[in-house]
Simulated scan of single mutants.
Amino acid sequence: MSKVKYYYDSETLSYRKIERKKGRRLGYAFIAIAGSFLAGFVLLLIYLNLPQIETPKEKALKRELQHMKLQYELLNKEMNQAQKVLSNVQTRDNTIYRVYFEANPIPDEQRKAGFGGINRYQALEGYDNSDLIIETSKKMDVLQKRIVVQSKSLDEIARLAKEKEKLLTAIPAIQPVKNENLTRMASGYGMRMHPILKYRRMHNGMDFSAPTGSDVYATGDAVVKKATRGTGFGNLIVLDHGFGYETYYAHLSDFKVRRGDKVKRGEIIGEVGSTGLSTAPHLHYEVHKNGQVVNPINFYHGDLTAEEYDIMLNQSALENQSLD
C-alpha cells in the first residue's frame, strides 16, 4: 500500500492531502515497463552470447547428436571390414571357383561400378554433418551393389557345379569289361591290320577279349541312343552321355537295354560276343567327342590303379592285329 502524503496550507492553517496527477502515474508505469523490457533484452543478448549456458533440451539434443556421430563412425568401420571380407570372397571367386568351372572372371569395373544419373544424395546436403552421412550412404550403396553382383556370381557357380557334377558322372571313366572277365586287351587305338580284310586301317577303338556272355558295363551315365543288329559292328549299343560324349559297344551277343533307356555308370548293358566282322569273342569299345573319335585309353581313371593303367597303355601301343 502506497504512503499518503500531505502538505501544510498556511491560508487555511490545515494539512491537505497531496493528490498525484494521472499523467505522472502513466509516465512512471511506462518507465517501469520500458526498463523491464530493456533489462530482458540485455539478459537475452548475454544468454545468446554465452554458449556454455544450455537448456536441458539443448543438452539432450547435443548428447543425441554426439551419439549419432559415434554410431555413424562405428558403421563406417564395420562397412570397411565388410568390404575387406567381400574383397577376399571376390578374389577367391575369380581365381578359384570361376576358374575351376571354366567361367570368365568378373572384372573389377563391373563389381565396383558406381551409380550414374541424378545426385542420389541431394536430400542429405545442407546439414552440419552432411559429409559424414553422405559418405556413409555411398559406402552402403556400393557395398550392397557388390553383394548383389557376388550373389549372382555364386548363383552361377552353383549352376555350373550342378552341370559339373552331371559331367563327372556322365563322362566315360571305367573299363567296359571287368578285369576278372578280361582275357586280354587284344588291340588298341591306331593303325592296325584288319583280321578279315587283311590290310592296315585305322582302328578307332580298343578290343577287350573276354568269354562270350561276359557282362558289358556302361562307362558313364547316359541314354541308350542305339541298340541295333548290323553287319560290320554286329550287335551294337551306342550310349549318348551328353556334353558331346558318345560310347560304342560292338560285336555283342546280347542286349540288356533298349533304345531310350537311361543307364548309370557300371550298369550292365549287354554281353560280350563275336557278331559282325569279328574273329573271336571280344568287345570293341569306342569313345566319341563332338562327333570325332578319340583314344579310349584316356577314359579309365575311374577304376584302374596306376600299375594297371601302365600295363594297358603299353599293350594298347602294340601294333598287333585287331580282332575286328
Rank of each mutant, 00 (worst) to 15 (best):
G117C: 04
T55L: 06
M202C: 02
A103C: 05
A227W: 01
T279M: 04
N314C: 05
Y285W: 15
L167F: 09
T305A: 15
V224F: 06
R201V: 00
P281L: 07
R120K: 14
V216K: 01
G117F: 00
N129G: 11
G190T: 07
G242A: 11
T212S: 12
Q66G: 09
E125G: 09
E102Y: 05
A317F: 03
K226L: 01
R258S: 09
I157H: 02
A306K: 15
S137A: 15
N179G: 04
V257T: 09
L61H: 07
K57D: 00
R259F: 00
V224E: 12
I269Q: 06
I134L: 13
V177E: 05
S153A: 14
V89C: 07
S322R: 14
G273Y: 01
M185S: 08
G114H: 06
G40M: 13
I171C: 08
E102G: 11
I133A: 08
V149N: 11
S322E: 02
N104S: 09
I269F: 01
L132R: 15
R159A: 11
R259I: 04
Y285V: 07
K57M: 01
L167V: 01
N49L: 02
I33Q: 07
Y15C: 02
M193L: 13
E271K: 15
L236N: 11
S14R: 14
K262S: 12
L132C: 10
R184V: 03
A210E: 01
H194D: 06
L168M: 14
T219A: 10
F243A: 14
P296F: 00
G27M: 06
V89S: 13
E246M: 11
K5T: 02
L236E: 06
L160R: 15
Q81S: 10
M1S: 11
S87N: 13
Q175E: 02
V224H: 13
L45M: 07
I31F: 05
G190K: 15
E165W: 04
R265N: 03
A161Y: 02
H203I: 09
D93K: 15
N298S: 04
L75H: 07
T169W: 03
N76C: 05
D108G: 12
G291A: 08
N129P: 02
R120Q: 10
E246A: 06
L70H: 09
R25K: 13
L38K: 06
Y6F: 11
Q292G: 08
G220C: 04
P211A: 13
R63D: 05
I268S: 13
L239W: 01
N76M: 10
I53F: 10
Y245P: 03
D9A: 12
E54Y: 00
K164E: 07
F41R: 13
S278H: 03
E319M: 14
I174A: 06
T91S: 12
K22A: 11
D324Y: 03
K166Y: 00
R92A: 08
Y6E: 09
K22V: 01
N119V: 03
I157A: 05
K226T: 00
D240S: 13
F115S: 06
I106V: 08
V224A: 12
R200M: 12
G23A: 14
Q52N: 14
G244T: 05
L160V: 03
R184G: 04
